[in-house]
Amino acid sequence: MRLSRQTIQVLDAFLDTPTEWRYGYDISRSTGLKSGTLYPILIRLAEHKLLETSWETTEAGKPPRHMYRLTRKGLSSAKEHVRAYNAGRSQQTALGGAKS
């Protein structure tokens, strides 16, 4: 699965609190991604079984909220991808520094 920079950002946000359930708006705020970008990523991650979803009833009479958490497979995949992405970035920075 090829991951975009935004997907890496989402995975990184999940890695901050890997065992906790997160809400869509909460992830949007921590990553700065708009709903139109965030939800396709969440859907794709859930379809690849990297993300588990659940409905939480917070207040009586109010509709439930959708929550997300990385699966075990998702957690190891996220760690691997975020590490690879950060390594690539630091390499690019080093190359940029050497050129200048």
């Binding site: 869509g24 708006y25 949007s28 709903s35 939800y39 509709p63 909220r65 959708h66």
Partner: peptide, 23 residues
């Protein structure tokens, strides 16, 4: 429905509209 429910937690009205359009 997940996207719609989250729009209730968006603070400002215009941001809620942007959230809905993105959704």
């Amino acid at each position: 429905h997940a996207m719609l429910r989250e729009s209730d937690f968006v603070e400002s009205n215009w941001s809620a509209l942007r959230w809905a359009l993105g959704s």
